[in-house]
């Protein structure tokens, strides 16, 4: 089936059916809901207290202003990183729910198309993210006076860039799980962390060795974290960075859709869709 066929037969009703399925699952399970909030809160408190501690220790020292600038972005960086991590996890976990419940065979036999499935997973990723990040961002204001929402429109741009990267990675991971079984599920929990040192979440790109800086600038999230530091420290929104990141994300997402479709076809050839397990 061609990409054009995929788009021409796209049904929002089928996307709605899948979103309903995941929403009913979330609603029926309070541990799943709690899990969405628990880790973001722990992370925010840990980094928030560390930031407060460093700021107090540095007070009065000669390097205090520079140190405060460096640490002042820690909570923001942590919240944006968590946003990215949760978006990818939300995507992959919804996919894994079908593998765990052995329901994938049923779904693949319905008229649900791969792009509709992907659209439903993206929607649920955004829903799960909202459930986790909104309360935590409000708690950050209460505990540490850090207002993520104060970033305004920039926050929207950051979200779009980070979410697109997360969904691209989630798509490839889902394809690998479809092809190789739930034995590949650990990738869903760990794969994003390879980006943590490379996309300069907690430090500027200039902190990396020169050769690694080229790698960092090839990753869309790097532009977000640099943009965030620019917004928080210099109060300047770098639209040039966001446009570059969006362009890269577009290419990354299209490549991920193509890889997912190839992995699904490969799973059909290998007979992996009949026996979905470890």
């Amino acid at each position: 089936m061609t990409f054009a066929d995929e788009l021409s037969g796209f049904s929002f009703r089928r996307v709605g059916a899948m979103v309903l399925r995941y929403s009913l699952l979330l609603r029926s399970s309070w541990p799943r809901l709690l899990d969405l909030i628990y880790w973001p809160v722990i992370q925010m408190l840990t980094w928030g207290f560390l930031q407060t501690y460093i700021a107090r220790q540095a007070a009065g020292a000669a390097a205090a202003p520079r140190l405060q600038v460096a640490t002042g972005t820690l909570i923001g960086a942590m919240l944006l990183w968590d946003m990215m991590f949760r978006a990818q996890l939300g995507f992959s976990v919804s996919f894994l729910e079908e593998m765990w419940s052995r329901n994938m065979g049923n779904l693949l036999m319905t008229p649900l198309r791969p792009l509709e499935f992907v659209a439903a997973l993206m929607t649920m990723s955004a829903v799960r993210l909202a459930i986790g990040v909104v309360p935590v961002s409000l708690l950050a204001i209460w505990f540490f006076g850090f207002n993520l929402w104060g970033l305004g429109l920039a926050l929207g741009a950051f979200f779009v860039v980070l979410a697109l990267t997360s969904w691209s990675i989630g798509l490839v991971v889902s394809g690998l799980i479809l092809r190789n079984g739930v034995g590949a599920e650990n990738l869903a929990w760990s794969v994003l962390f390879i980006l943590l040192p490379l996309c300069c979440v907690y430090y500027p790109v200039s902190a990396l060795p020169a050769w690694l800086q080229h790698v960092a600038w090839a990753l869309p999230p790097t532009y977000v974290f640099e943009g965030m530091r620019s917004a928080l420290i210099n109060h300047v929104f770098r639209s040039d960075l966001m446009l570059a990141a969006l362009g890269m994300d577009g290419v990354l997402f299209a490549a991920s859709v193509a890889i997912y479709l190839r992995l699904e076809e490969s799973a059909r050839r290998a007979g992996a869709l009949l026996q979905m397990g470890e």
Partner: peptide, 21 residues
């Protein structure tokens, strides 16, 4: 192949009915 265990029979049938149009 199984159906999602946590969803009720009615909820499962509703989802599949929607998927099948």
């Amino acid at each position: 192949v199984e159906m999602p265990h946590r969803l009720s029979v009615r909820e499962n049938l509703r989802v599949f009915a929607m998927l099948y149009g």
